[in-house]
Simulated assay, not measured.
Amino acid sequence: MTSLSMTDDECWAAVRRRDKGFDGRFVTGVLTTGIYCRPSCAARHPLRENVRFFADGEGARATGLRPCKRCLPDDVARDEGAVIAAIQAIKASEEPLALADLARRTGYSATHFQRVFTRHTGLSPAAYARALREERARAALSEGARVTDAIYDAGFSGSSRFYENMEGRMGMTASAWVNGGRGVTIHWAVVPTSLGDMLVAATGKGVCRLSFDEGRAALEDRFPAADLVEGGADFEALLKQVVDAVEAPVNGFDHIPIDVKGTAFQEAVWRELRKIPAGETRSYADIAAAIGKPGAVRAAGSANGANNVAVLIPCHRVVRSDGSLGGYAYGLPIKDELLRREKAPGQRRFDEF
């Protein structure tokens, strides 16, 4: 039997919020009615003293409780299985799959399946398929494939549809992207900081990469045909601002321009990260709820991990629901130190990019 990984107080808070992001993580047993529910159940809240929390329906049923007929808590696993099956079908198909076809494969109505898929991934099935095609095209182009081959192999019906999808979503024009960044100048440098060697790279729009323990090779992987220029007079001024932001993050860094593009969902997550005040943290569930996708906790975590500009987009301010640090691409010591520095007085809220 699965053990509950959250405290009762955390569970009760999620129930009070009717937080869909916690559906599937535990169930709420109501001893007076003999039923158990999802955290998001729309039924009237029971009294706290009449509630007990279980890791799953199996644990609740073992005590004699039965599933709520209103919120159908045992269907959470079925929903997740349906989404996984749909993702596998989308990946395996050479042609875009209609929503009705995906729903029929999973046994749901089209309308209900659209809601279930979006709640679990943060994207509609159509948007997920488009993002997958874009990712395949990026990978093929980065590996040196011919533009036309990459476009059709990725599942686009033609070059016009490819450019329509890619334009304005990568921090450079679509034509520059399909040529591996050709025609784009990126200034870069690796500088020592108190947190270790830091890579900073910027286009004419702003910082496009900030990371630790990386060098030129990391940029070549992302922009194999870009004009990579080490240093530069104008870049030095920007570089100083970035170093200052890392060494003293409580002074703020909303004035530093950044050049990042992702899916609509990723950009929504990154904007929300920029809103977290220095000295504070949020959970993945908090971020998902804040962007209006409370069920897309995993997708929010993936978007957080896809952040290319550390510190300036403060993904280090996202922690687990239990308050533990969780993961960090550049190691927990750096994350811990950044959070420690930001607890100093004088924090301010950052603007959206």
Score class of each variant (00 low, 15 high):
residue 1 M to N: 07
residue 4 L to W: 12
residue 4 L to P: 01
residue 5 S to L: 13
residue 6 M to H: 15
residue 9 D to T: 12
residue 10 E to F: 02
residue 10 E to D: 14
residue 11 C to M: 04
residue 16 R to N: 04
residue 17 R to H: 12
residue 17 R to K: 15
residue 19 D to A: 07
residue 19 D to T: 11
residue 21 G to F: 10
residue 24 G to M: 03
residue 25 R to D: 10
residue 26 F to N: 08
residue 33 T to H: 00
residue 40 S to P: 09
residue 40 S to R: 04
residue 47 L to S: 05
residue 49 E to A: 08
residue 52 R to Y: 03
residue 54 F to R: 09
residue 54 F to S: 09
residue 55 A to C: 12
residue 55 A to T: 00
residue 56 D to G: 02
residue 57 G to N: 08
residue 60 A to D: 04
residue 60 A to M: 01
residue 63 T to H: 05
residue 63 T to Y: 04
residue 64 G to M: 12
residue 68 C to P: 04
residue 68 C to H: 03
residue 74 D to N: 15
residue 77 A to V: 08
residue 79 D to H: 14
residue 82 A to S: 13
residue 84 I to G: 02
residue 88 Q to R: 15
residue 90 I to C: 05
residue 91 K to D: 14
residue 91 K to A: 14
residue 95 E to M: 00
residue 99 L to C: 03
residue 101 D to A: 15
residue 102 L to G: 03
residue 105 R to F: 00
residue 111 T to R: 15
residue 116 V to D: 01
residue 117 F to L: 04
residue 119 R to E: 15
residue 121 T to N: 07
residue 122 G to T: 13
residue 123 L to W: 06
residue 125 P to N: 06
residue 126 A to I: 12
residue 127 A to S: 13
residue 130 R to C: 03
residue 133 R to E: 02
residue 134 E to A: 05
residue 137 A to T: 00
residue 145 A to W: 05
residue 149 D to S: 10
residue 151 I to V: 00
residue 153 D to F: 00
residue 153 D to I: 01
residue 153 D to H: 06
residue 154 A to S: 14
residue 155 G to D: 00
residue 158 G to R: 00
residue 163 Y to M: 01
residue 164 E to M: 05
residue 170 M to W: 15
residue 172 M to A: 01
residue 177 W to C: 01
residue 180 G to R: 09
residue 180 G to D: 02
residue 183 G to P: 01
residue 184 V to T: 02
residue 186 I to G: 06
residue 187 H to W: 08
residue 188 W to E: 00
residue 189 A to R: 11
residue 191 V to A: 13
residue 194 S to A: 15
residue 194 S to L: 13
residue 197 D to P: 15
residue 199 L to A: 10
residue 212 F to I: 11
residue 214 E to Q: 14
residue 216 R to V: 09
residue 217 A to K: 13
residue 219 L to R: 06
residue 219 L to D: 09
residue 219 L to V: 14
residue 219 L to F: 11
residue 224 P to T: 10
residue 226 A to C: 02
residue 227 D to P: 03
residue 229 V to G: 03
residue 229 V to Q: 07
residue 229 V to M: 05
residue 231 G to C: 06
residue 232 G to K: 03
residue 233 A to S: 11
residue 235 F to S: 04
residue 243 V to D: 07
residue 243 V to Y: 12
residue 247 E to F: 02
residue 248 A to R: 15
residue 248 A to I: 08
residue 249 P to D: 05
residue 250 V to T: 14
residue 250 V to Q: 10
residue 252 G to C: 04
residue 252 G to Y: 09
residue 256 I to W: 09
residue 257 P to C: 08
residue 261 K to L: 05
residue 261 K to V: 02
residue 262 G to D: 10
residue 262 G to K: 06
residue 263 T to Y: 05
residue 264 A to E: 15
residue 266 Q to G: 14
residue 268 A to M: 11
residue 283 S to C: 09
residue 286 D to N: 03
residue 288 A to W: 09
residue 293 K to Q: 12
residue 294 P to F: 06
residue 298 R to D: 14
residue 302 S to M: 13
residue 302 S to H: 12
residue 307 N to D: 11
residue 311 V to G: 10
residue 318 V to E: 09
residue 318 V to S: 10
residue 325 L to W: 12
residue 328 Y to W: 13
residue 329 A to G: 13
residue 330 Y to H: 12
residue 330 Y to C: 07
residue 335 K to E: 11
residue 337 E to N: 12
residue 337 E to V: 01
residue 338 L to H: 06
residue 339 L to N: 14
residue 344 A to S: 09
residue 345 P to S: 02
residue 345 P to C: 07
residue 347 Q to C: 05
residue 348 R to C: 03
residue 349 R to G: 03
